[in-house]
Structure formats: structure tokens, C-alpha cells
């Protein structure tokens, strides 16, 4: 995976571990494979950057603010579904509106 010159064996190692880095981040790999990846990262700067930035990428997406559904979208939904008497903007009640 490296952009800098690597010998063939090193390059093959990078590709081998690359296949597992997503599961490595999710914590679903065996301890043995985790140890191997960590040992590889200690000697391969590019793989270390890929793993760290991949982890950061996932974290940044998880921290995106959740878009709220506008009240008017919900109101139109209830109308389309023929449930208008049950519409409440606060989403807290299931009783028909007065």
C-alpha cells in the first residue's frame, strides 16, 4: 500500500493486513491477528496512517449531527396516510387530535 519504495514482501504484508483493518477497527478480529497488525504498523508508517485515518473517518461520520424531520414533513406524511386526526407535532401522543 505504500507510496514510498517497499520491497515485495513488505508490500504483500500491507495488502494482507489491509483486508482486515475494517474488522480490526470494529474489534471483531482475533487477538492473534490484532497483534500481527499492531506489529506490522510499528514498522510501516503508511499502514499506521491508513489505520488511524480510517478510524478517524468513521468517528467523524458518527459525530455528524442527526438531521431532524421538519414538522411540516411529518404533517404531510400523516395527511398522505389518512391519519391526520392523530397528528401531533411533538410526536409524544398517539391519541387523535382534538
Amino acid at each position: 500500500m505504500s507510496a514510498t519504495p517497499h520491497d515485495h514482501d513488505q508490500h504483500e504484508s500491507c495488502r494482507h493486513y489491509l483486508r482486515s483493518i475494517s474488522e480490526y477497527l470494529d474489534g471483531t478480529l482475533s487477538d492473534t491477528l490484532c497483534d500481527e497488525i499492531e506489529a506490522h504498523m510499528a514498522t510501516c508508517e503508511n499502514c499506521r496512517v491508513v489505520v488511524n485515518t480510517l478510524s478517524k473517518t468513521v468517528l467523524l461520520y458518527r459525530r455528524l449531527p442527526s438531521p431532524e424531520m421538519p414538522d411540516e414533513v411529518k404533517e404531510r406524511l400523516f395527511k398522505v396516510l389518512d391519519l391526520r386526526p392523530y397528528y401531533h407535532a411533538d410526536e409524544s401522543s398517539e391519541k387523535p387530535a382534538e
Binding site: P67, E68, M69, V73, K74, L77, F78, L81, L83, Y86, Y87, H88, E91, E94, K95, P96
Partner: peptide
């Protein structure tokens, strides 16, 4: 009322 409850509980996530 069950239809409305299903919508209330899930519409935000689906949107």
C-alpha cells in the same frame, strides 16, 4: 391508533 403510533415511533429514523 396503532398505525399512527408506528409512524410516530419510526418516521424520524426513516426520514
Amino acid at each position: 391508533a396503532a398505525y399512527a403510533q408506528l409512524v410516530d415511533e419510526n418516521a424520524g429514523r426513516i426520514y
